[in-house]
Design a protein around this nucleic acid. Sequence first.
DNA 1: CTTTATAATGAGAACGTTCCCATTCCTATA
DNA 2: TATAGGAATGGGAACGTTCTCATTATAAAG
Lengths: 335, 335
Amino acid sequence: MSSTIFDVARECGYSKTTISRAFASPEMVSEKARRIIYDTARQLNYTPNAIARAMVRKQTNNLGFIVNDQQYPVVLNPFYSPIFEGVLQTCRQRGYSVFIANEEEIQLPTGQVYVKKQMDGVIICGKTEPRVIDEFRAQNIDVVLLNNVFDMDELVCITIDHYGGAVKAIEHLVEQGIEEIAIINGHFSPYVYKERFRGYIDVLMRHDIETKDAFITTIEPTMEEAKQCARQLLSLDERPRAIFATNDTIAIGVVKVALQMGLSIPEELSIIGYDDSNLSAIIEPELTTVRIDKEEMGKLAANKLIDILQGGERKKEIIECPTTLILRGTTYGHH
Amino acid sequence: MSSTIFDVARECGYSKTTISRAFASPEMVSEKARRIIYDTARQLNYTPNAIARAMVRKQTNNLGFIVNDQQYPVVLNPFYSPIFEGVLQTCRQRGYSVFIANEEEIQLPTGQVYVKKQMDGVIICGKTEPRVIDEFRAQNIDVVLLNNVFDMDELVCITIDHYGGAVKAIEHLVEQGIEEIAIINGHFSPYVYKERFRGYIDVLMRHDIETKDAFITTIEPTMEEAKQCARQLLSLDERPRAIFATNDTIAIGVVKVALQMGLSIPEELSIIGYDDSNLSAIIEPELTTVRIDKEEMGKLAANKLIDILQGGERKKEIIECPTTLILRGTTYGHH
DNA sequence: CTTTATAATGAGAACGTTCCCATTCCTATA
DNA sequence: TATAGGAATGGGAACGTTCTCATTATAAAG
């Protein structure tokens, strides 16, 4: 039905090889031939068959974006979706397409084997196991790890300066003379979780501020748990004057509860979130939060991966993306 | 490097055909053979090559999701991302993968020709031209149109009951005795725009409520324009007691301005949005809005498309998805 | 006007499957 | 024991490209 390279060849008198070249590397073909070929192609509605091409070239120009997040699917994930958008952008630029998947759906019925020479490389986000990376590599699929760190040969890991971000947040509060600072820590991957907490505790200790056990809480990072935790925290006899939430969803839960309890923000309660998700500027007052340039992370990951695929050196590397404190309405210091 | 069907065949003594069958249609292969084949496959790290398979089967099991939205990219698009998630879900279930693209990036350097037998079918969202659909079809790529309606042969269009949603919103306000209702209409595709407006005007007329020109406004649907428009509307000598915003971003802009102007919601101003985006439950008070079940739309589109691809009948059809009014804090009647 | 280098074109194999058609192997029935 | 019939297996062509190598056309130099 759809015409092939042979149809075009027959129609315009050039060989299949020349037709192929006219599309794949036009500079190898004479001006005249190219024009004729393009014309008849258009006329016959011919388009190079990407599958056949991938078959002989042994590369698909497809990448996989793999996220294992039980709570939100990729596209709706406030954290990963901007990263994915970044990936998408550089892939577009560099001629790649992207599949979304999680680890389950790329498994074969055989058991442990993973499928798909349909992708040249994958970006694996967050939770996974080294075993998975080995399996991909065994199939010649290159891997870049994002928002996680494994100590493996030739593996590029792209992560975030979680510690530094937390430090900036707490320093900002302390600078204003606030000492009663509680933390609601989301139960993320161990690495993230610990680093953000370390930032909190370090700053307090450096300033000789006493840490109260009641101010240190951990929850699953859902809005519901956040609200419940905030209610508890704000009902304490000596309630905190600031709450550091380790992501924006939690922080928004806190804002909502504080508003319901009639507390004025930031006069009676300062709140800082983490991630600068697209939700943070929606709530009123708008959220002071630690920004991670997620699109940039995605671009970086995609670029690293494509560099490798295009013959770049495969070398072990851990890249820590910087964070910025974004001052908004839930904190003093917003002009 | 990666092993092929022949490696497995050589290793375990069965023919390539049997190996092929063990993966593609296991029921045609004896229990014993299957076990042996799977074992050696695992051992040799063999995986069926999806590209080669696609080549002979002439189908890739890939769909394209095409969105032409200048404002937001797909993944970050509050309207299309839930739809995409729905698409993704049914595709996962039915064994398909999905590419994201817009129309530009699937064009060939030849000019008008469109590329990619890498997809069996596409879902085109929103703005496009009939010509585009023709071009896809000329390449044997089936099309389902979403959130747009063209009068074309054998074309499935999936759209929304924009009119009905608007009617529900305005009726709800009128029921409470509110008559001074303004509309801020986002400048969407003509169809959407007109239908939502028609709902607004019809209800007012049916109740013999006078419509004021000053209450009827149109803007580009950005937060900034919305705020500006709201400020203007709320500074009128006879200001509206309710504002119907034709999407949630606009509505949130209105809420923010009203809050800043010290108006109490909903006592002094009721607000209704449209779409029930994930932002609508973030703002405080939470937004009363017209819900569209976007994931369901996505699922429907994917199912329709896959049905066709799997040999289903190709018949012209226009499906209108229903809407629901979600009562929340920006309106009376929230329990 | 020949020779030489370069640009433009072609023929054939290869890529790793699936599918059609044939063949072999069982098992049950006569 | 012979025979049929289905289940299980195999061989070869085909899918639509690209790539290597060879050939021809074209231009530049002697």
